[in-house]
């Protein structure tokens, strides 16, 4: 474990907590894409298949349970909770996430570290995580008013993967044979997808104006 990875995990945890806080306290999910939340639930479900078979550490297991629990409960809130679901913007959140899942699955079948169920699912979860934010970014472009919590949520979500890139660089130089091209490339693509959001987020923060993304 290195400081970059810990910072990445904590940032990722904060992004989930910010979202849960928003949904649980103000009982609203305005501006949040259910499609992205469902994709994240699928990412964690396919990535943590080994949660009960391969024990890495207490930290690893607890974090996996938190990410699984929070992502599924957010989907539950947005689908089932009578108050929260009312604030869900169904008309605007129209990204057909099936068109993200299928290519990721096909790519995982072709490009994986080992053609076993677990490894294909691992590769699938990495490719899917890289593109899972797209429905959310599309929704942000459409709904002009981005409230602070949603902006912070997306920002933290992007920052966590950026920290992970530093973690991979660090591990590459400090651990022999630490080479995971699939993880590195999908992590890089994922972070690049946030690039323009970061640009507008920093500008709005610097000029102290409300965050809005150009059409």
């Amino acid at each position: 474990m290195n400081i970059f990875r810990l910072a990445g995990d904590m940032t990722h945890l904060m992004s989930v907590l910010v979202l849960l806080l928003k949904i649980h306290t103000i009982k609203s999910c305005a501006g949040i894409s259910l499609k992205t939340q469902e994709l994240y639930a699928l990412v964690f479900a396919t990535r943590y298949l080994d949660i009960f078979t391969d024990f890495i550490s207490v930290y690893n297991t607890i974090m996996k349970l938190i990410f699984l629990g929070s992502s599924f409960s957010i989907v539950w809130y947005m689908r089932r909770h009578k108050l929260v679901r009312r604030s869900y913007d169904k008309e605007q959140d129209t990204f057909r996430h099936f068109f993200l899942v299928l290519p990721c699955l096909l790519l995982a079948l072709v490009m994986n570290e080992k053609f076993t169920f677990k490894e294909v699912m691992w590769a699938f979860s990495l490719y899917l995580e890289a593109v899972a934010i797209l429905p959310q970014l599309v929704l942000l472009q459409r709904t002009k008013n981005i409230d602070n919590l949603t902006g912070q949520y997306v920002f933290l979500l992007g920052a966590y993967r950026a920290f992970y890139i530093f973690n991979w660089i660090y591990r590459y130089f400090t651990e022999p044979h630490y080479v995971h091209w699939i993880t590195w490339i999908s992590g890089l693509v994922q972070t690049l997808l946030y690039a323009d959001f970061f640009y507008y987020y920093f500008n709005s923060w610097k000029n102290n104006v409300k965050l809005h993304l150009p059409a």
Binding site: K64, E113, K114, K118, Y164
Partner: peptide, 10 residues
Amino acid sequence: EEKETTHDEL
């Protein structure tokens, strides 16, 4: 036999 890679990252 080739060791199964355990992915230790979240």
